[in-house]
Computed example of a mutant assay.
Amino acid sequence: MTPETDTEAAPAATRIPGPLSALGLAIVGLTVVVDQLSKWIADANLVYQQGIELIPSLLALYRVNNTGIAFSLGNSADSLILIALTAVVTAVVIYVWRGSTEGGRIAATGFALIVGGALGNLIDRVWHGHVIDFLFLHWNERGFFVFNLADVALTIGPILLAWVYLLQPGKKG
């Protein structure tokens, strides 16, 4: 084996499981399926804007249609702009994921959760013109936000990436 061949093989060996790996496809696919199934159930069974307490004073089922982005920001934005923005951000995350060489399975899981969550909300936006949110986080009478399982994935994904890349500088997965 020549030094050039050995050098060329090394980066591929250190790459994290990518978007087309079994891990990547499984997490993205599972995230999208669970998200879409939960939204379908919520849409079919929850009365619009009528709450059902799950955990008293903390979490309720409460279906709303979110035409904006996170925390209903951008409610007045054109739906096509939000679709395009979501598609571009998702493509950038996939591009960064494909080029990542450190972080192992934890980083791959973080990237996959972000992509799966973004795709789940993108499907809603394309199909319905809004995102179906149905989990209401509140403290007694003080409401914080209504979200869905794609949003949970979009929160856990960056937390995993921060854990690997910022909080564990000597350990990369």
Rank of each mutant, 00 (worst) to 15 (best):
G157Q: 08
I94D: 09
G120C: 00
R142C: 12
G103A: 01
I41V: 14
I106G: 08
P19L: 11
A10R: 15
S76N: 13
A9P: 00
P169C: 06
G170I: 05
V33D: 11
G173C: 03
V164I: 06
A26F: 05
L137D: 00
T101Q: 14
D35L: 06
E53T: 14
L137S: 08
F147Q: 12
R105Y: 08
I114L: 12
G129P: 07
D6S: 14
N65L: 08
F136P: 09
S21C: 06
G116R: 03
T101S: 11
V126S: 00
V92Q: 06
V126K: 02
T90W: 04
A13F: 08
G104K: 05
L113C: 03
S79L: 14
A153T: 06
V32Y: 03
G120H: 06
N45Q: 15
T101P: 06
N65S: 13
V92I: 13
Y48E: 15
L166H: 04
A44P: 00
D124L: 04
I83N: 04
V89Y: 06
A26N: 10
N45S: 13
L37W: 12
F144T: 10
G117H: 04
D133C: 07
A153H: 07
T109V: 09
H138N: 10
L167F: 11
A44C: 02
G68P: 09
V164R: 09
G173L: 03
T31C: 05
W163C: 09
